[in-house]
Amino acid sequence: MWNIPRDILEAEILCRLSIKSLLRFKCVSKEWHCLISDPKFALYRQKKQGEIDNNNTIHQRVLVLAISPDRLQSLHCLTRCITELNFNFPFESRPNVIIGSCNGLVCMALHGCKDFFIYNPSTRAHKKLPDPDISLGSPYLYGFGYDSSTDDYKVLAVSCLRVLLKVFSMKAFSWRDVHYNLGVKLFYGTESPPKGCLFNGALHWLVSGFHFGSQDPVIIAFDLAEEKFCRVGEACHPRSVSLGVVGGCLSLNVCCSNCVDKTTDFELWVMKQYGVHSSWER
């Protein structure tokens, strides 16, 4: 068993195991402990699991922060089943905002987005981030994602009133100020606080289209590698409320109220060609 080549051990054996089994197998040897603890192995395992899973269920689940205290739920987009997730938050108080999730890690915030944590639900490990020193009274856009160009996780806090962007680097374990220029001030829509949707290596937000010369809401994106903003295009409907990713495409949730029977329906639109407005499909 000990003569198994490392590449076979990693690619054909360990990457197929559950997180619970991997945590136990850390005790087998120092070599196994180092291999399983390596962040690169975690990324490789997730990629391999996606290839093994023919139903692609990994990308069809949505993490939901429930209204009741200490509850997280997982929504399966195909079956529409909601599963309770018993995470047992290791914090002094319950997180009130999920900033985003990426590669099995979840970025959460407490106390009105004053205290930030990176949390691994599988291992229950967590790390508190330094104080970003932002004004609690000012509106911000938030985001969390992985920059593959530098192998780094980043957290963003973008001021909607001032030309100020704070970027946290997990590698440097510190916040830094980055000045941006979109030509206008940022104004966001119904979601508060707005969390960035990670897609194509960039965080995306839905902001007020009026300030961008459009009647409909506008999608903007922040490239995590280049650390620059760009305008992706207009939303397909004035009642767009949130962004997502469905079937490898940027998606849009549209709220449609019926004044007659006083009901509310939601439509899902996908952008089949990234950045092409005419490619929106219901």
Rank of each mutant, 00 (worst) to 15 (best):
C15F: 00
C230I: 05
L78K: 11
C160V: 12
K114H: 14
I4T: 15
V218K: 04
S29I: 09
P69S: 02
T190C: 13
V260L: 13
G196N: 10
S29A: 01
F87Q: 01
L65V: 12
W2K: 11
R71P: 05
G189R: 06
A235D: 03
S174G: 11
G233W: 02
K114A: 08
L17I: 05
W205F: 13
C34T: 12
L141E: 02
T57V: 13
A125F: 08
F25K: 01
E10T: 14
F91V: 04
S138D: 15
V158W: 01
T83G: 03
M1Q: 09
V245I: 08
L14W: 09
W175Q: 01
E226V: 12
G50R: 12
C15K: 00
G189I: 14
C256R: 10
G275D: 08
S149V: 13
L9N: 00
D115Y: 07
I8S: 04
N200D: 13
V163C: 12
D38R: 07
P193H: 06
F187P: 00
S138A: 14
A109I: 07
I134M: 12
S169R: 05
A11S: 13
E10G: 05
R16P: 02
D131W: 00
N54C: 15
L22D: 03
S251I: 01
V28K: 02
S174W: 03
L156A: 03
V178H: 14
R71K: 15
K48H: 15
L182Y: 06
L23A: 08
A225V: 04
H277Y: 15
K127Y: 03
C160D: 11
P139C: 06
A125G: 08
A235K: 01
S251W: 02
V155W: 01
R282W: 06
L17M: 11
D177H: 15
R124D: 04
H76K: 08
G183Y: 12
E12Q: 13
L224H: 06
D223P: 06
W2N: 15
F229K: 03
R282L: 09
C27S: 15
V260N: 13
M170N: 10
S138W: 09
P39F: 10
V184P: 04
E226Q: 15
P69F: 04
S148N: 08
F87W: 10
L85Y: 07
Y180E: 11
N253E: 13
K171E: 06
M170Y: 11
G145I: 10
S240P: 04
C102I: 06
T83I: 05
D223Y: 08
F87L: 13
V270N: 00
R282D: 07
M170D: 08
T83P: 03
L198I: 07
K127H: 08
V246N: 00
V155F: 04
S21A: 11
